[in-house]
């Protein structure tokens, strides 16, 4: 099944426009950030420790999220985009943007990876970042959900880990994430920041030890563990007005704002 870029979003916007005036429509920016031990990810240097006691560095983190949807308190779903590629080591892919009808939004949904029914070779547009995420046809076809790679300390130097999740042998290890939020949109520009806690992938319910895991693309047990652990890796750190010029603030508690309310505190932007 081919992804039709923004087609679903466009159709959804038209349907929603019938019940809302244009003045209610707002702009939404969804950011994807990453933390380890509650601090912003710093790549390449061995500085992190996971639940298994592995001291490690991350040299690559890229992933695909799909079917990104905002849901109103009344249960109406607004499609933001069908698929988004994120390279955590580059700000160029940090955000996706969309226009949405006005309303009271209460949940952000997305699929980590691509749903099994859609994850076929050639389903995504032929652009470099999607091509580089290809999951070879002899191994099931489609696309990686995530490529997280790095080094970790071993007794005689450094070993490496490859946390490559995807449709191993054609099975579906993608998972759905639903994050509660409160966002009242009545025009304007708004931001939501989703945070991935990287150590969570290796933490619970199953501790994941790099020493026990080599290449895992063909390892269904490892894929299942990561699928389970990964469902708890995401949270929302911030919702509020989107300020194009303000500096990003990381790691703040979920901050609720509504349009038109007087603000007595410093506004924190998502850009």
């Amino acid at each position: 099944m081919k992804f039709i870029y923004h087609g679903l979003a466009a159709c959804s916007l038209l349907l929603n426009a019938c019940s809302n005036s244009d003045s209610d429509r707002g702009e939404i920016h969804v950011n994807f950030d990453h933390v380890i031990a509650e601090a912003e990810l710093v790549p390449s240097e061995i500085r992190y420790t996971n639940a298994a006691g592995n001291e490690y560095a991350i040299t690559r983190l890229e992933y695909i999220v799909s079917d990104i949807i905002l849901e109103t308190a009344a249960g109406k779903r607004v499609d933001l985009t069908e698929v988004h590629y994120r390279n955590a080591l580059s700000n160029a892919t940090r955000s996706l943007s969309a226009h949405i009808p006005g309303g009271e939004y209460s949940v952000l949904h997305f699929t980590f990876g691509i749903d099994g029914g859609k994850n076929e070779t050639g389903a995504l547009p032929s652009v470099e970042h999607f091509n580089n995420m290809a999951w070879p046809s002899p191994m099931g076809g489609g696309y990686h959900y995530m490529r997280m790679e790095g080094l970790f300390r071993i007794p005689d130097g450094e070993g490496s880990f490859l946390t490559h999740t995807g449709p191993s042998a054609g099975a579906d290890f993608s998972f759905d994430v639903s994050l509660p939020l409160h966002l009242s949109v009545n025009g304007g520009s708004w931001g939501i920041t989703v945070v991935m806690d990287i150590n969570q992938w290796y933490d619970a319910p199953t501790v994941y030890d790099f020493n026990d895991r080599g290449s895992i693309m063909g390892n269904a047990d490892a894929q299942f563990t990561l699928q389970e652990n990964g469902t708890a890796a995401f949270s929302i750190s911030h919702t509020g007005r989107h300020d194009h010029d303000a500096h990003e603030h990381e790691g703040e508690e979920n901050h609720e704002e509504t349009a038109g309310e007087e603000q007595n505190h410093e506004e924190h932007a998502d850009d």
Binding site: R60, G157, E158, G159, F161
Partner: peptide, 10 residues
Amino acid sequence: SNLTDPLMLI
């Protein structure tokens, strides 16, 4: 070494 790509060190 620590310079070698993780894809190969695995």
